[in-house]
Nucleic acid binder design. Sequence first.
DNA 1: CTAAATCGTGCAGAAACGCGCATAAACGTG
DNA 2: CACGTTTATGCGCGTTTCTGCACGATTTAG
Lengths: 255, 255
Amino acid sequence: MSMLPGERLDLIASRLQADGKVVAVDLARELDVSEDTIRRDLRDLSARGLCQRVYGGALRPAVSTGTLDERSRQQSEAKSALARAAIDWIAEGSSVFLDAASTNLAIADALPRDFGLTCITNAPQIASALTLRGDCDVVSIGGLVDRTVGAAIGAEAMNAARNFRPDICFLGACGVDPRAGISAVHAEDASFKRAIAGASAMTIVPVTTAKLMTAAPFHVLELADCAAVLVEADAPEAAVEACRAAGAKIRRCGQ
Amino acid sequence: MSMLPGERLDLIASRLQADGKVVAVDLARELDVSEDTIRRDLRDLSARGLCQRVYGGALRPAVSTGTLDERSRQQSEAKSALARAAIDWIAEGSSVFLDAASTNLAIADALPRDFGLTCITNAPQIASALTLRGDCDVVSIGGLVDRTVGAAIGAEAMNAARNFRPDICFLGACGVDPRAGISAVHAEDASFKRAIAGASAMTIVPVTTAKLMTAAPFHVLELADCAAVLVEADAPEAAVEACRAAGAKIRRCGQ
DNA sequence: CTAAATCGTGCAGAAACGCGCATAAACGTG
DNA sequence: CACGTTTATGCGCGTTTCTGCACGATTTAG
C-alpha cells in the first residue's frame, strides 16, 4: 500500500480538523513512516498555518482558514506614514469606519493585526482590501457606486449608514482650510461624510500636505468638529498654526 | 489494444473521481505506457483543474478552497473563455447581476464596453473591478462580508437584494449535477443565490469542467430553473448529456 | 537534577520530476 | 500519393523531492 506524500498531508490535516489534535508517534506507526517524516509534515502544515505545532504532535490552530496574502501593494510613502500614525487611535475590538480615500486604503492595509476590529466602509476597494486581510469583520455599505468617488453614496447608502455608530471614523478630505474647514469635491460624497461623521463617536481626518490650506466646493465639517486632523511630518508650521487658531486639534505625523 | 490519448485521459479522470487518488507508476504499468506519459497526462488534467498534482501521482481536487482572488488565479484562461461566451446573453442597457464567483470576476472584466449596463453585485471585489472599468453603473449590495465567500451575504444582503429585478443574473456554482442540480458549499451563500436568481428574469450558470458532475452540500436551483448552463468547450459529452436529460439547457463554450 | 522523550539539522540514497531531443504516427494539403 | 506539420511518445540526463538515519540540542516528567 503506497501512500502519496501529498495524500498523507491531506489525511493529517483532516484528522487534525476532526479530532483537534494529532500525536506524532501514533501517526508514524499508523501510516508506517518514520517519526521524522511525520514531524516534517507537521512542520509543513504549520508553515502554511494549518496546524499549531506542539511538543509531541500538533493542535488545530485557533483560527482556521488562514489565507496567505503574498500580495504587497505598492503605495505612496507619505500615505502609509499617515496610516501608521492614524492607527494609534484605534482601540482593540472597536468599530472603524473608512470612507473613500486613498489614505484610507493605506490605513486598511496598516490596521493592527488581530485587533478584532469591525470595519465599515462604503468603498468596494477598501472592503476588498479588508476582506483579504482576513483578521477583521468587514461590513460594506451598498448603494450606487459613484465612479469618480469610488464608493457607494446617495440616499440608499446614507440610509444604510444610519444603522451604524462607529467608534472611530477616518474621513478623507479633498480640502482642509482654516476658514472653509473640511471640504469635498462631490456634493453627495460631502453629505455622506457629514452623515457618517455625525454618527461616529470620534472623527479623524488624515490629510496630505498638498491639501492643507485648500478648499473644495462642498462643506463637510468644521475643523473643531474633528477629534483630530492628522498632518504629515513636513507640513508647514504656518498652516498648522492657522488651523489651530481656527479650532483644529492638529496632530503631526511621527510625533 | 491501442488506447487513444483522450480515452486514457478520461479513464484517469474517472479513476481519480472514484478513488480520490491515482499513483503515476501504477497507471503506467496498468495502461502500458511510460511514466513520462502519465505525468504529462496528469499535468494536463491539473492545468484544467481536474486534479491536484502531488509527488508520485495526483489527488482529486479539494472543493472550493481559498478566497475569491485566489480562485480567480486558477485556470484563468478557462474562466475568461467562459466569460467571453457568457457576455453574448447581455443586451445593451440591461441590468446585470454578478454574484461572488471567480468566473464572474472574469465576466466583470469581459463585459462589452460602453453598453450602458447597470451592474449589481454583492462581492466587493467585483464591484471594485466594475468601478475601475468606468463604463457602467455599479450598484454594490452591502452587508456582512463573508471572508471565504468574498461577498456580502446574510439577512441584510438578502433584504437589499429584494429591491432589484435584474434582467440577467450570472450565478457561480460550486457543483452542477444531474440529480443535485446547482449547489453551493456555503448555506447563506446558497440562500442568497436562490433569492437573487428568483428575482432575475434570466439566470445563467457558467461552470468549469471540474465542477460538472459534482455536488456541494447546499441546494440552490434545479437545472431546469436556469435559462442556461454554460460549460467549457472540452466538457465531457457524457456529462453534458446527463445534465440535458435532467432538464438543463446546456450551452457549450465557443459554439 | 536526571533520564527519557522529542526535536532540529545535516547527510545520503532512492524515487520522482522536468526538460530537451529524437522517433513515429496521425493529420492536412496540394 | 507525396510532403510538411502537428501530435504523441519514449528515452536520457540533470535536478528536485522525499525519506530514514545519525547526532546533538531541547523539552518534559518524575
